[in-house]
Every structure is written in C-alpha cells, then in structure tokens.
Design a protein around this nucleic acid. Structure first.
Lengths: 238, 238
DNA sequence: CAGTGGTCTAGACCACCCT
DNA sequence: GGGTGGTCTAGACCACTGG
C-alpha cells in the first residue's frame, strides 16, 4: 500500500515461499492464519488471501476450510511435457523437419476409425522427415480430412503446428490433443522412406487432435527406429 | 450475496465459460469490463475479479492491464502425463509389478554419473517386473544410494512410488522428477531377466528423482521390449 | 483524456472444524 | 464456543492503454 515497488500480497507470498524452500516450514505444517498474517504484515485480510492464493496456485500449500493452510509435499506423479514447433519434439533438442510428400488418399480402416470417417473417404496424407545433426531421425505421417477447394500451402505444412494446420484447413478450433507413446514396428511404407526394413522396431508417438464434442480432426504418427529422438519431462506441482 | 447455493463469483465464471464454449465468445474477443460485469450482476468489483480469476486460471481468458480480458485459443503444446502407482505406468492400463530382486552393488560409471556419486560407491539396486494381463511387459531397474542401518522393507519396495521410496530411505524430500523416453536396447542383464536377446530394441523410460539443490537421489530405468506399455497424455490449457 | 485492469481497505456474515 | 477459511461489499487510488 505505502511505498513498495512490489505488491504487498506478492511480498507476503515470497516470504512464505522462502520459508518453505528453506525448510523452516515443512510438509504438513500449518502456516499462520490469515488473521495473524494480516496483523503481522499490517494489511487487510483480502490482501493476505491474495498472497495465499498465489501459493495455493503454485502448489506450495493446500487450504482446508475451518482448519487452516498446510504445506504440501511436492507431487511427483504429474509430468508436464512441452512440445515445440511443427514436429512436437522434445525440449532442447535441435530437430529440423523436411516435407517428404503430400497426397490425397482414401482412408483405410485404421485411419477411418481414428478419425471417425467412413472407409474410403478422401483424406490428405502429409509426410515429414525429421532430422537431428546426426541425420534423419524419424518420419511423421499426418492425416487430416480432405476439404474441397481448400488448398494446402507448403509453407503452412512445414512451419505450422499440426493442430494449427488442421484447424486452419478445417476452419475449426482444436480443443484437445491426445498423445500416446509406445514401441511399435515400421510399416512397409515407413520403412521404405526411412531406408529400414519392414517390421523394424521403432518409437511411436501418436497424436490425435480433437475439435469440440470430441470430434477427431487430425491424426499424426511419428516413428523413430533409432535413438535420436528423446522425449523429456519434469514433474509439476499443481 | 443473498441467497444462492453457489457463490456469485462462481455463477459469473460459469456464465462466461458457457458463452465461450457455446461459441458466443470466440478466441480474441474481449469479455465485458469488470465494471460492466459488476453492474450487470449486481455485485462488487472484487467479486467480479474473483470470477474472472477463475477463468484466467482455467486458461479460458487472458487479461491485459489497461486493455481488457480476451478469450484465448486453447493451447495444444503442453501435455500432462499422469503416472500412477509404483510403476509409473500409464493411465487406464492394468499393470502389476512384482519384485524380482534387491541387491547392494557398487556403482558403475554410468550410474555414478547420474547420481553424482563416486564410482564404486555402494548403492542399492532394485528390480521389478511389470506385467499386464498379456504377460510380462517390462523391467524396472531402480538405483538409490545405500544408507547404512536403513533396511528396505519388501512391502515398501513393492507398493511405494519410487520418489516416495527414495525419500523414505534417505529421509529427504523429493522435489523434482525428470523423465526421458526414448528407444534403446536391452543390456545383457535386462535381456536375461526378460528372456530376450542382448541388444533387443526396447522402449526406455528413464527417471531421475531430485531433492533440494538439484541433488539427484534416485534413478530408475524401465525397459519394455514389446508393445504392452503405452504412455498417454492429454493437452492442458493453462 | 476516459476506460481498463491491479492493488488495497476495513469492515461484515457465513460455513466449517474442533474441543 | 472460538478459531479457521470462504464470500462479499463499497468504496479508493494507481498503472497502463488507447485515441
């Protein structure tokens, strides 16, 4: 309120956070009550609550009505993966993508199922080659419904995120992105492009983009038969 | 304020959220100003702000000082993976783990490096076999520093999360968990246990648990030479 | 300049928890 | 009951944005 370059609630939150990180307050401990903090810092209770809310958001404390606010144990079971760029590949890695081909094809049973379309429906297949400094790392095959009179620009394909690309082509807003990572085998087509044998084991990263109402609007599968792709994540406390 | 089973700020947030989800408010649109909403709902501005804060937290809007609050595009590049149970395996899958062996061994160069210990330091190696209904799926090999006079109970090993186990053994608080997923090959030891050949390609899930000051206190490596393990995630909007 | 969000107050009443 | 957090008010002043 008075003279302070930073908000009072922020100072309060930082103070408590420092106490937690210094170990003065341990998991399970209760922080001072809002009334106490208000008195101690000479601010109103609403201001205290604003500071406490920050800590709650940051996952440092949990508040329980009628009891108090308590220091939490860091959670280790929620992991945040951040994907970047058109290729959705991990973190700090330097990965470049190159367009391999674009074709309009008829949906096979598998793809038709994933995109909830009838078998044989025209769809667009885009294939990108992903490379690190060590050479070609993986193949990204993407499918999206074919929309008549909606040309795809090469520029768009190479530089847009997949959800972004799908959204632009279909003029829809993507709302959900589902990922699955597993060990799989190269299909004949994939093997041919990558210069490997059909059936070679590979890291598979599957991605389905949904619009509203759980309507699938795009499918992507990255296959990597080598160790050049690495997906990393750090636990998050919420 | 008056009689309402649900808080006023919550009603306000729900109203706006519904308008967004119904498409009445599109990405980029500005929501009514706080003053307008206060008047419209007959509540004070602080109450409005509380509701707006909810939407901000939920990732539905972004507020810009001096301009207003605007509907955001859903983010697709942040993915939340949830791991469950001692085996850290994906989602809805039914996976059971069975203790294979526990030994005190001397750290080789690789493990010593990961845990920032001197080569040859005594460490505990725990190996768990993971199985689905279809059979054995993977091998989880865990390493943690050996602490004299701190026995490990089998119960603990089988049922605790790895970070939890490490924490209990070392009497430290784990604060960070780093994951890396890639394609690797079975070591001779892993292959022998799993009944596969040395060098067989496998899905590798590496996990390092850190305490304060980026001090590594545990390392785990899951190897899966088949397709029975699947890691899934859904995009999160923050 | 007017309009917006950002911070803050000094109270109030309520719902919940414990003893 | 007394203590806790949860909600809410009716103002105030500030900082930032835009025309």
């Amino acid at each position: 309120m008075k003279p302070s370059f930073i908000p009072a609630y922020y100072r309060l939150a930082e103070d408590l956070k420092n106490q937690i990180e210094a170990g003065e307050l341990k998991p399970g401990d209760m922080i001072p009550s809002e009334a106490q903090l208000a008195k101690q810092y000479g601010v109103s209770r609403m201001t205290v609550r604003q500071g406490v809310a920050l800590l709650t958001q940051g996952g440092f404390i949990e508040t329980v009505q009628g009891k108090g606010s308590f220091i939490t144990k860091p959670r280790m079971d929620k992991l945040l993966f951040k994907f970047a760029g058109g290729s959705y590949l991990g973190d700090s890695e330097k990965i470049s993508s190159r367009l391999h081909n674009v074709e309009v094809v008829k949906a096979g049973a598998e793809i038709a199922g994933k995109l909830k379309l009838a078998t044989g429906t025209k769809i667009i297949r885009i294939q990108l080659l992903l490379a690190t400094e060590d050479g070609i790392a993986a193949l990204d095959t993407r499918f999206l419904p074919y929309v008549k009179g909606q040309p795809l620009l090469e520029m768009e394909i190479e530089y847009a995120d997949f959800p972004e690309l799908v959204a632009r082509h279909l003029e829809l807003v993507p709302v959900k992105n589902h990922f699955a990572i597993s060990l799989g085998c190269l299909t004949a087509n994939e093997a041919a492009i990558l210069g490997e044998k059909h059936g070679t084991p590979a890291l598979c990263i599957e991605q389905i983009v949904y619009a509203a109402n759980d309507n699938p609007i795009g499918w992507s599968k990255i296959v990597c038969p080598n160790d050049r792709l690495k997906i990393t994540a750090v636990s998050q406390t919420f």
